[in-house]
């Protein structure tokens, strides 16, 4: 464990909690892409199946359980409790255009052609593009609630910090996982446009609205 990975995980946890609280407190999931949240639930489900097969640390197990519970709670709030506030007309990204290539990639490019390994690879590839429906929805509505931009900021920051974690682990532990690094780079690059808007607008107290 290193400071980049720890702050990355805490940033990820912060994003997940911010979103859950936003929906719960405002009793509304306006502006939130349910499709992205379903993809995140799928990412955690396929990646954390090893919860039952291997124990790494208490921290690892506790965080995985929290992530999975929050992901499904968020999906439930969007499609169940507060579905009346779900903006389906703007959440129209064709997720099959993500799932099919990700499945093909996971089967073709992985570390080992074993079920658990392919599921892990699928979850890594899927996570790198899972935010696209949310970003697409914001581009369609032309704006985002400020709390939603904070959610996106911490979510983007988490994988950016993981990039530094991988640099750290490469130099100090000789650890290197090309699949995770490449997918993490793609994931972080997808946030660059948002990061720019967040820093130049939201941090200056303005509302995030497009076109910039």
């Amino acid at each position: 464990m290193n400071i980049f990975r720890l702050t990355g995980d805490l940033s990820h946890l912060a994003a997940i909690i911010i979103l859950l609280l936003k929906i719960w407190k405002t009793r509304s999931c306006a502006g939130i892409s349910g499709k992205s949240q379903i993809l995140f639930a799928l990412v955690f489900t396929t990646r954390y199946l090893d919860l039952f097969s291997s124990f790494i640390s208490l921290y690892n197990t506790v965080m995985k359980v929290i992530y999975i519970m929050c992901a499904y709670a968020t999906v439930y709030l969007i499609y169940g409790k507060f579905k009346a506030t779900y903006d389906g007309n703007h959440d129209t990204f064709r997720v099959e255009f993500l799932l099919i290539p990700v499945v093909l990639l996971a089967v073709l490019i992985n570390h080992a052609f074993a079920p658990m390994e392919i599921l892990w690879t699928f979850s890594i590839y899927l996570e790198s593009v899972a935010i696209l429906p949310q970003l697409f929805m914001i581009s369609k509505t032309g704006e985002a609630e400020t709390i939603t931009t904070h959610y996106l900021f911490f979510l983007g920051l988490y994988r950016t910090l993981y990039l530094f974690n991988w640099i750290w682990r490469f130099y100090f532990e000789g650890f290197f996982d090309l699949i995770a690094v490449v997918a993490g780079l793609v994931q972080t690059i997808l946030y660059c446009d948002f990061f720019y808007l967040y820093i130049t607008k939201v941090l200056k107290g303005k509302k995030l609205s497009l076109p910039a």
Partner: peptide, 10 residues
């Protein structure tokens, strides 16, 4: 290859 070890990251 070392990445074949179990995935210890979240």
């Amino acid at each position: 290859a070392d990445e074949l070890q179990e995935h210890d990251e979240l």
